[in-house]
Design a protein around this nucleic acid. Structure first.
Lengths: 136, 136
DNA sequence: TATTATCCTATTAATCTAATAGGGTATGCA
DNA sequence: TGCATACCCTATTAGATTAATAGGATAATA
């Protein structure tokens, strides 16, 4: 199941990508428009800023804005930042690999074999979609 | 993340599919071989039996066994029984569809658009794999 | 210097998962 | 018949994770 964090984050990014000018948009505005708890959204946007996906400006007239063009914001990056590993099990994860304690041989493991295929296909989707692809 | 329930369930099914004869295998045996808590596995196998994937036999010489040939056990069925919905959000789920409270128009929703693609691809993988495909 | 709006940490409530406990029930065999 | 075996079933609990909240610190603008 997709976390609300990721869902809200994606909605916020979409909203920002739809702005005509590149003026900062306030948290309160995004939260109101997307029906999101403002405080919760605050922490999500903070994460997106710290990982270089968003920029921010403090004080009056401040807010959040996209640093890059929507067509350069890959879903692989967004998903990894918000949702974490793309793979459903650590033993098939590219960026968060971990060996299973219980599994003696990954190559003979049915779970590994199945989840490897799922990961490949999910990754293909995320690599194939930028923020720009989602707003049309 | 894949739940342990699903992981253990898949491992148990694989183990059963690898048995030469069709004799029932005891929970204790499966649990020991796959490093799984016996009691936890018990409830998982019970679920698989109730949904028609496994058969069971009580008393001495009893245990669990596959009802169908491994090549006829689809991963779509196994995953839905053990893990629940295949989709990451209810609004793109085939078998567990639910509308989002917050979302005014699914067709314009970026999350919907992205997760629809993920669901399609994951479904393709699960439809393309039977238990037999995982044990070679 | 007052106002605005982000920044940051800590805490809590709610939910879900994994595991455990304890006894009930049917089967097979001597 | 009686006993051992092994599944059947419900309830409970511990732990982890997620979602949300609270409260103030910091920086920018006018």
């Amino acid at each position: 199941m997709l976390s609300k964090k990721t869902k809200y984050g994606l909605k916020a990014l979409t909203f920002l990508a739809c702005q005509k000018d590149k003026q900062p948009v306030q948290i309160a505005g995004i939260a109101a428009h997307e029906n999101i708890s403002q405080k919760f959204l605050e922490s999500i946007l903070l994460t997106l800023r710290k990982t270089g996906i968003l920029g921010s400006k403090k004080g009056k007239g401040g807010g959040y804005y996209l640093i890059k063009d929507p067509s350069e914001i890959l879903m692989t990056d967004v998903m990894r930042v918000l949702e974490g590993p793309i793979a459903m099990v650590p033993c098939v994860s590219l960026n968060f690999y971990e060996k299973c304690d219980d599994c003696p041989d990954e190559n003979k493991c049915a779970v590994n074999k199945l989840m490897l295929q799922v990961r490949d296909n999910t990754l293909k989707v995320f690599r194939n979609n930028t923020l720009a692809d989602l707003i049309n």
